[in-house]
Design a protein around this nucleic acid. Sequence first.
DNA 1: GTTTGTCTACCTACTAGTAGGAAGGCGAAC
DNA 2: GTTCGCCTTCCTACTAGTAGGTAGACAAAC
Lengths: 195, 195
Amino acid sequence: MKSVASTSDKILDVAQSLIVAGGYNGFSYADISDAIGIRKASIHHHFPAKAELVAVLVDRYTMQAQAGLQSLREQAASPADQLQFYIDYWRSCIENASQPFCVCAMLASEMQMLPDEVALRVRAHFRNLAAWLTSVLQSGVEQGVFRLDRRPEEQAQMLMASVHGAMLSSRALGDPGLFIAVVGPEIARLRASNC
Amino acid sequence: MKSVASTSDKILDVAQSLIVAGGYNGFSYADISDAIGIRKASIHHHFPAKAELVAVLVDRYTMQAQAGLQSLREQAASPADQLQFYIDYWRSCIENASQPFCVCAMLASEMQMLPDEVALRVRAHFRNLAAWLTSVLQSGVEQGVFRLDRRPEEQAQMLMASVHGAMLSSRALGDPGLFIAVVGPEIARLRASNC
DNA sequence: GTTTGTCTACCTACTAGTAGGAAGGCGAAC
DNA sequence: GTTCGCCTTCCTACTAGTAGGTAGACAAAC
């Protein structure tokens, strides 16, 4: 329990923001070295190979995300609030530019050339997120706050795609507000579908 | 009017499929060299710098896309069919793996580290596509085949995000069928919103 | 006294890009 | 109708710089 982040955490932090910016091939050990003032060889001491570094990074990211989503499920009053908190999290990440893209979404776009150990973990994150969204939607239906016109699994996939697509449009068009303009109506529709 | 593709077209073709697979930093002149059996220096003769190659590639892609979308507008009977043809195009690209991702969507994810000349063109493609979708939705509303609960521009952004997000999920989960499973219901909803 | 973390110094392979020349097509001058 | 110069295309051979990764020394901490 140190007061400052450990070197390996600092390495992962920097690597993560570099991946968010430019993907797997968009950063090098030299970039990390420059950013935190440590020699390249020292990074290799903590993470012998690049694929391993990114695999550990994705593991950490997935665990953080799972923990965050799990606590959302436990703390937020209704499934509608849980969904709202989830997209609000990303809205703030994008609007204050602290993390304008999901690491796993970034890596997923490069799926075809990712080392296996990384690709498997990225795929797992997508499955986890889809499962979480499905479970939230399912609960919402049971509690009568959502009215879906598709099975919860399908609706969850649609929602996840919308979130990632909104991140991409937001980035492509350089308009942080576009994220919520796209995702907002999408979740509003789940609640208001009272035909 | 040659029977075979010119060298520069072959270079662009190969570069495009390499970008679709791994993005801007995911290919090199050596990769193209290997693929079409020409020396690296010869590629530099046609495209002196990498940024220029990709800029020309995006220009070509955008022009092809614009031409295709334009002819869709002119040929397909109703706006609903136009939309259906559009997503059917991508469905077949993804299912037969001929082009499992949009070049500009791929590049958009790397926006932050793209050379300006490329980034500007990618952004233009997003604007063009959004404008086309807006115009199709608008016509659909006027002809009474669509019933939107948002302004056409907003609905177009939502649809575009859905398409790109569906491509990403499809790739991340290695499930080509997921694309249509996500996008299909999304456009079905535009037609069936007869509350 | 071994483990941990960092360093300097190095390696090989690859990156984008350049210099300069050979081979051939083509139109004009003689 | 052949020679001339220009242009295009491709080549070999090279550059400077960067990629991921390694070997081994050193100091502090356990």
